[in-house]
Amino acid sequence: MSKRIDVKDLNVYYGDFLAVQDVTMTIEPRSVTALIGPSGCGKSTFLRTLNRMHEVIPGARVAGEALMDGQNLYGAAVDPVQVRRQIGMVFQRANPFPTMSISDNVLAGARLNNRRMSKSDADDLVERTLRSANLWAEVKDRLSRPGSSLSGGQQQRLCIARAIAVRPEVLLMDEPCSALDPISTLAIEDLIAELKTEYTIVIVTHNMQQAARVSDKTGFFNIAGTGKPGRLIEYDDTETMFSTPKEKATEDYISGRFG
């Protein structure tokens, strides 16, 4: 199911403003790629270009290439809605639909895609997906309760369940643990490690230890100053990035000398 993504000379604009410049990288299937760097350097903007979520902002556009298993995600005949079905996203703050039950939250994407299911098929999908998100044991006796009744960490795992219920090939995560306590963060990190056996995962994080723990490859973004575009400074195996980075700026950021 998981897919390889090849990005070449990608530039992201908001109107005339160049926000991210000349990103070239390969994101391998069945792996976790972490994007690190100081605030405002374009990590989340770049992440959103991978499933065309940035297009919801008026004036946003992309130049360059983003290919998934050779298919241009920005091809003229490509439907951005279909891209977002194939490349799911989990946001910084857990956002379960507050008026929906836990089970209806899981089924929301499938129903949005006009997928008709019998009750038994729906029940099977809910259980299978919540098990995949390591949440089933905690919520199986209260599936009819609102998703918003869960703890913060449980809500984030519910949002991950909602994202994978539609069977995407890639999962994007924008600082999924930034609002969580250490125990909930560990639960999400354990889940990421399990999910990478099936999905290609890209995660934005400000937590250096988290990037070192969960990722196979790491990309360091930086910005030269206010009003300048963000750039990918270095991209390598995580172990190499955290032990012997090639760029001084990478070493300075990872060691805490700036950022």
Rank of each mutant, 00 (worst) to 15 (best):
V62T: 14
A63S: 15
G64H: 04
G64S: 09
E65L: 11
A66N: 12
A66V: 15
Q71V: 15
Q71L: 13
N72K: 08
G75A: 15
G75C: 09
G75P: 09
Q82M: 14
Q82N: 10
Q82F: 07
Q82V: 14
V83C: 09
R84W: 07
R84D: 12
R85D: 11
I87G: 12
I87F: 08
V90L: 07
F91C: 05
Q92S: 11
Q92E: 13
A94I: 01
P98V: 01
P98Y: 00
S101I: 03
S101H: 02
I102W: 04
D104R: 12
D104L: 06
N105V: 10
A110Y: 00
A110T: 14
R111W: 04
L112N: 11
N113S: 13
N114F: 12
N114M: 14
S118Y: 01
A122D: 07
D123N: 15
D123S: 14
D124C: 05
V126A: 06
E127I: 01
R128C: 03
T129K: 03
R131F: 05
R131L: 11
R131S: 04
W136M: 10
E138R: 13
D141I: 03
S144M: 06
P146M: 03
S149K: 05
L150W: 09
L150H: 11
S151V: 00
G153K: 04
G153T: 03
Q154G: 12
I160R: 14
A161T: 05
R162P: 11
A163G: 08
A163W: 02
R167H: 13
P168A: 10
E169R: 10
E169V: 02
E169G: 15
V170C: 13
M173H: 01
D174N: 12
D174H: 09
E175I: 06
E175M: 07
C177M: 14
C177G: 07
C177S: 15
L180I: 10
L180P: 14
D181E: 11
D181N: 10
D181R: 05
D181H: 07
P182F: 07
E189T: 03
E194Q: 15
E194C: 06
K196Q: 13
T197R: 11
